[in-house]
Design a protein around this nucleic acid. Structure first.
Lengths: 219, 219
DNA sequence: ACCTGAACACCGTTCAAGT
DNA sequence: ACCTGAACACCGTTCAAGT
């Protein structure tokens, strides 16, 4: 007899898009990137898996939404980490860098989504310029979130240069050197190409590596 | 009538393992990491796809074999790049670093396999120490190849320190700072989180970022 | 020993159809 | 507009069986 009222409207709270992102985030947190499945995410929300195609063009688009949220969270995490320290100080730069690594250690799966292979279109078939242009176009809001997080770092570098704690050089180059170092460290750690045991030790080790770049490798 | 002689022995050259690695390498080169399929690799060799299980425990094991060959090739590429330059010179260090980036640019798919997600076991369920130990144990020859390639860099750093071109610091720290920077740069480039157009420009840009770390960020 | 055919339990994506 | 059922073309992996 109960045949026509298995929750009709509002079945998925009215915001299926949001619910799918949350479910996918949870899946990734529980079982890593590989555990994120369109079918399973939809099942958790209590909806047929094809319903997802109403809000996302394909699985990659949902993936990109996760990555975008990750970059936004990264940005606020870094901003908060530096807030109390004097703007322009070396300690504040170090705190930002440490917050970056901390973010990746706290939520490794999200970090992997943010830098997942799925978000680039294979191995560059045509010219690299054309390819880069196309790749940028696919998820513009993701690109914005990435740039916003990078811009935070750039502005901090500028402040540090004005305070005389960082040397005069293109600020975007300095910021990129910092990002590159932090991302490289985290990625090598997560891929287990370098070893890491407990959190405190990793952080100390990272600060040592960071210090080398900050102070230079030359005598 | 021809019913019992569809090439019995030597059907796969007698070295199916080798043939599968080559086929997989080709697939990856053609279509990226996602194009590598156990079934397709076996089909190219002309063998049923279950035959692969005779030589590899699972798909990941074949994947690890590709990564291992990649690290060996990386090592020889770097060794050759530095050979003619005076040992201990800054130019030689820079040549090694540039060869690293060049390797990744020349063969992006192999580089991605070398740092592929498949090679680590998800998002660290137990304690990180136990997990790291397990991960190390799974593909010991891969770990050896990784270490051999890192050791090359370390020995070059030591030579540079003895020549007085790099400052006195734990050589493994200096080497790791270099690796981290190079890998971070390449990875951000390949994931399109930073832009790159033509090869020459990328190399110049990378050398600028590298220079920042070499000379320090402090005034 | 080495390889195969058939089957299993999954995927992402598409299509026609329901309300 | 929003969702579903059924189907398609794939996967990796396992198992019993052939030579």
């Amino acid at each position: 007899m109960p045949k026509k009222l298995p929750q009709k409207l509002g079945y998925h709270h009215g915001d299926l898009r949001r619910a799918l992102i949350d479910a996918a985030t949870q899946l990734v947190a529980e079982g890593g990137e590989g555990a994120f499945t369109l079918r399973e995410a939809a099942a958790r929300v209590g909806v047929s898996h094809v319903a997802a195609y109403r809000h996302f063009a394909d699985k990659t688009a949902l993936f990109a939404a996760l990555a975008e949220e990750g970059f936004r969270r990264l940005r606020t995490t870094q901003a908060e980490a530096g807030r109390e320290l004097p703007r322009g100080s070396l300690a504040r730069i170090e705190a930002l860098a440490l917050a970056y690594v901390g973010f990746a250690l706290d939520d490794p799966s999200t970090y992997r989504v943010m830098f997942g292979d799925r978000l680039d279109d294979g191995p560059v078939p045509g010219t690299e310029e054309a390819q880069a242009a196309r790749a940028r176009a696919r998820f513009p809001t993701l690109d914005e979130a990435v740039e916003a997080s990078f811009d935070l770092l750039v502005s901090e570098v500028v402040a540090a240069q004005e305070a005389g704690t960082l040397r005069a050089a293109p600020p975007r180059d300095l910021a990129l050197a910092l990002w590159t170092l932090s991302h490289g460290y985290v990625d090598l750690l997560q891929k287990r190409r370098i070893r890491g045991d407990e959190r405190a030790k990793i952080e100390r080790h990272y600060l040592r590596i960071l210090g080398i770049s900050l102070h230079g490798m030359r005598p």
